[in-house]
Amino acid sequence: MIKLEDVSKIYKGEHIALRDATVEIEKGEFVFLVGSSGSGKSTFLRLLNRAEIADKGVIYVAGKDIGSLPSYRVPYLRRNIGTVFQDFKLLPNKTVYENVAFALEAIGRPKSAIREAVPQILDLVGLGRKDGSYPHELSGGEQQRVSIARAFINRPLILLADEPTGNLDPATSVGIMKLLDRINRTGTTVVMATHDRGIVDTMRRRVIELDRGRIVRDQARGVYE
């Protein structure tokens, strides 16, 4: 599903954020990216949906070399990749329903399809009754659920999560991890960057550790350290 061959990313011509990364992630896997702050986790994820372009090496997503994708094709790549962030990136002037519907409007889905899909996904993330609330009326965990609903509503092949529990307390984080696990069980490949030792050690999934841009460990059913 995802394959990196000798991939390097160098910011501003000097700062090497990722060095010669070679790794393959199969369809349906759940992978943790761990490493200290600045080790290149976000860069790794940003390369996968072409928010950044690799300076060296080749990245395949679903069999396609995404580095050679013309820019007008990039949106179609992103429709197959859901993304979740630490800061949720919800639109403050839209309700929960509108925030999720926005992801479908933006790719030109008809209203009838949107009216059907949004309540379903909100039920799935456990926010069926909060559809009229605004983001500032929700807890952090609820906001993250909205952002996951938005990322997953297109049933993407891949879900990228960049420290999704970074702003949440441990109890709330457990709920978010259960949700991501459920999504993973539908066949969606999940790649999650995290600092959270407890989560990694409990889940016991594949762990890829980065250190100053290098992959220093790749372990099935791994632990944080």
Partner: peptide
């Protein structure tokens, strides 16, 4: 810019 960022994220086409 927030809307635009989200649109890009969810794969809205450039012309959209």
């Amino acid at each position: 810019r927030r809307e635009i960022e989200v649109m890009r994220l969810v794969g809205a086409s450039n012309w959209f």
